[in-house]
């Protein structure tokens, strides 16, 4: 069933704005509304086409009026953030995540026309740690969630969504758990992290990182919006990079920092307004996280076009990151030794 009127929250952000633009390009959808507290950047606004931007706050009960007056039948909740790229006020983000979701779901519950809800969640709900299985599948319970980070918000948000699913069994609810996004155009905590001149890593640990190209994230959210595939799905590129490997591929220099000193290092970067390391971000850099995407491929019918490695390489090329050591010179040396006459 193709939706008639779609409301996208978080339309001021990269994912929300691009998703609204993609949906607006679909002629079967009559109307696309983008909602956020701040309008998207100029260049984003230009790409949005016939999608309408509504300046509204999902934390305010007035959002119910927007949903009912526009006769919205599909809501895409893309306003939650589990890993804000830059330094931000913890309380403000938590409020947007948790209170915003509560108000939005309350408004959805009272809306009789609503048929579908798509929630952009995060793979951070599985936590990260020594006790977390190497590969997380959808029905695993969260483990080792830090109390100070945003992953806890995501777990709570999913709890509210489950409650909503129970109360409105007629609404089809699709939850997409996205792994960390990386690509040339997007600004995420990892794109900032790998662009640092010296990249702090946790001494003695090497996290396994699974990445998702933003194009795949948008395609998967679009598919979730336009088709009826309720359920919870993990979304991530195929394959894994270790953190040290990724740093080498980007040509950066990793600086191992003892785990006890990691919060201090994080505070330095935070105060320098470069990149925000929350507690669960440090945990992620410590242990990493990989999710099982079998259900996405088999039941949801979507295979990400970009593998983890390709997404990362696209980011490295797009950003123009230059390696410290030129691999071409080593390769030339290798060939010369192989060629020389004995």
């Amino acid at each position: 069933m193709t939706p008639k009127v779609v409301l996208v929250t978080g339309a001021g952000g990269y994912v929300g704005a691009h998703l609204a633009a993609r949906l607006a390009a679909n002629p079967d959808i009559e109307r696309v509304l983008g909602v956020d507290t701040a309008p998207p950047a100029k260049d984003l606004l230009k790409t949005m086409g016939r999608a309408e931007f509504v300046r509204a706050d999902i934390r305010n009960p007035l959002i119910a009026k927007v949903i009912s007056s526009a006769r919205v039948d599909t809501v895409v909740h893309a306003a939650t953030t589990a890993n804000p790229p830059g330094p931000a006020r913890r309380t403000a983000i938590k409020e947007m995540n948790v209170i915003g979701t509560m108000q939005l779901l309350a408004a959805c519950q009272r809306s009789p026309q609503l048929r579908k809800l798509v929630v952009k969640s995060t793979a951070a709900v599985y936590g990260a740690g020594a006790r977390v299985p190497a590969v997380c599948s959808e029905d695993m319970a969260p483990k080792d969630i830090s109390s100070g980070g945003y992953a806890k918000d995501a777990v709570e948000v999913e709890g509210y969504v489950r409650g909503f699913t129970r109360r409105r069994p007629d609404v089809r609810v699709t939850t997409m758990r996205l792994t960390n996004m990386i690509g040339p155009g997007i600004d995420t905590v990892l794109t900032r992290y790998f662009a640092l001149p010296v990249v702090p890593t946790v001494l003695g640990y090497d996290a396994r990182v699974q990445l998702l190209h933003p194009e795949d994230a948008l395609a998967v959210l679009e598919r979730a919006t336009t088709t009826d595939l309720p359920g919870v799905y993990n979304v991530g590129g195929d394959g894994v990079l270790t953190l040290s490997q990724a740093i080498r591929r980007a040509g950066r220099v990793g600086v191992p920092v003892p785990r006890v000193a990691m919060p201090t290092a994080a505070r330095v970067f935070r105060n320098a307004r470069v990149v925000d390391f929350s507690d669960d971000q440090i945990q992620f850099l410590n242990y990493g996280r990989v999710v099982d995407t079998t259900r996405l491929k088999q039941d949801f019918g979507f295979t990400p076009r970009w593998s983890t490695r390709q997404a990362f390489d696209d980011y490295v090329h797009g950003r123009g990151l230059r390696p410290v050591l030129d691999p071409g010179r080593l390769a030339a040396l290798e060939n010369r030794i192989r060629r020389t006459d004995g």
């Binding site: 040509g251 691999p327 040396l333 290798e334």
Partner: peptide, 29 residues
């Protein structure tokens, strides 16, 4: 190539792959 050269070239090739992150890691690491 003589044995030593072959070994040296292989060692440099290995080093290059390691330094540029050009190797595969499975989902368990």
């Amino acid at each position: 190539p003589t044995g030593v050269q072959q070994q040296l070239a292989n060692a440099i090739g290995f080093l290059r792959k390691r330094l540029t992150g050009d190797y595969a890691v499975d989902e368990f690491g």
